[in-house]
């Protein structure tokens, strides 16, 4: 019999099988249900807002903050250094790089507790490691970090450290979020360069202003930052 007919039958047959097989791009949890349940029961998956404030103050490079709110809300304000992955866009393959960082701690937050915990379970179920939730979300952040005041006569060293941490994070939060949008990412680029090297750096063309954005760095500090035609 003609070889081409055999090959045709084979390919059509395999294709027919494929048509009934589950979509290979579908995301199915890798963990066993019992493993996932055990992990989710742990208290260690939570960071308090004070701990996250410390990450922000220290610019901890082993932590990546993931903001799960919509892009509009993110633009209004977000925790400095966070990455916006809107909840409904979570499974977009573009973000997969954030979930495959083995040496990074990934901290999810939304406005409340609900979405961050749902995303934590999905991400962990899909095999992402070192995932955490910021307890209470941004509502808790505002309540505790942004709006508490120390009231009382005498402050203990512990309270002092706690409030210093909060005030510092509060300042950074307010400053960064008061910047125009176009500068926020540039600000972090500049900070990263600041740590890297001394000299003049062209950060790139500013879309809105159509100017080149240039910084001068000396002694790990930005000494000059301006736009040039």
């Amino acid at each position: 019999m003609d070889a081409r007919i055999k090959i045709t039958v084979l390919l059509v047959g395999l294709g027919f099988l494929l048509a009934f097989m589950p979509n290979p791009s579908s995301k199915i949890f890798k963990l066993k249900p019992s493993e996932l349940l055990e992990k989710s029961g742990s208290k260690e998956i939570y960071f308090s807002v004070d701990e996250v404030a410390r990450f922000v103050n220290n610019e901890d490079s082993t932590v990546q903050l993931i903001d799960l709110r919509g892009a509009d809300e993110f633009r209004k304000c977000n925790i400095p250094g966070s990455v916006n992955i809107p909840f409904d866009d979570l499974l977009n393959p573009n973000w997969s790089v954030y979930f495959s960082q083995k040496n990074m701690r990934t901290v999810f937050y939304g406005n409340g507790d609900q979405n961050a915990n749902i995303v934590w379970t999905i991400a962990t179920g899909l095999g992402a490691e070192n995932c955490y939730v910021m307890e209470g979300g941004l509502n808790e952040w505002f309540k505790t970090v942004m709006l508490t005041k120390f009231e009382g006569e005498r402050i203990t060293p512990r309270e002092n450290a706690l409030f210093e941490n909060r005030y510092k994070a509060r300042d950074i939060f307010t400053q960064i979020n008061s910047l125009p949008d176009s500068l926020k990412t540039k600000f972090f680029d500049a900070k990263r360069l600041q740590r890297a090297k001394v000299g003049w750096w062209v950060l790139g063309r500013n879309e809105r202003m159509r100017d080149w954005e240039i910084v001068q760095i000396e002694n790990s500090k930005i000494v000059n930052w301006y736009f040039d035609k």
């Binding site: 709110r69 406005n111 409340g112 979405n115 736009f227």
Partner: peptide
């Protein structure tokens, strides 16, 4: 709805660009 921000961010109006 637990996913609503109950607070409003108050920008620092004193912040200025270096430029």
């Amino acid at each position: 709805n637990p996913e609503v921000l109950k607070y409003e961010f108050q920008p620092d109006t004193m912040a200025r660009l270096e430029s």
